[in-house]
């Protein structure tokens, strides 16, 4: 278990360290804070998709466990891997539909939780903002 956690820490930390390097680069290129964060996510997603397509992400994940699961690259892997796997069942009913088997619940619960918090914020705002 200690070894699992060390792997998760090192690989997960490494992915975040790469993310920070990308973010710093985009900020230096003159992007706003929000845009730099979004560009960082998009870049990591693209890298993860490429690694998934080549079969590398799964091999790394067999060692890294949560280190490759928890970063946004893991979310991208959860979308891209079923798309590749189930294209045999068609690009509509296979690849596209199955993209959401793992990622769907993340979006559903994330979106609903943020909407709830938004509504709560709407009610709290008159008191908090003052």
């Amino acid at each position: 278990m200690g070894r699992d956690c060390a792997w998760a820490f090192a690989v997960g930390g490494g992915i975040c360290r790469l993310g920070e390097a990308l973010r710093t680069g985009y900020l230096a290129a003159g992007h706003t804070l929000t845009d730099a964060a979004a560009l960082t996510s998009v870049t990591l997603v693209a890298l993860s998709a490429a690694a998934t397509a080549l079969g590398w992400y799964q091999k790394l994940a067999a060692r890294a466990g949560a280190g490759t699961l928890v970063p946004i690259t893991g979310f991208a892997n959860a979308v891209v891997s079923p798309a590749i796997e189930f294209k045999a069942e068609g690009l509509v009913t296979g690849a596209a539909a199955r993209m959401f088997t793992i990622a769907g619940p993340v979006l559903v619960y994330g979106a609903v939780a943020s909407a709830l918090w938004g509504a709560v914020w709407y009610l709290l705002r008159p008191w908090v903002a003052a």
Binding site: T52, A53, G55, Y57, Q58, L60, A61, A62, A64, G65, A66, T68, L69, G74, N77, A78, V80, S81, P82, I84, E85, F86, R98, I102
Partner: peptide
């Protein structure tokens, strides 16, 4: 794997 568990390229640890 693809029928009962996860796609082959998915990184969920066993």
């Amino acid at each position: 794997e693809r029928q009962f568990r996860t796609p082959l390229g998915y990184g969920g640890k066993r």
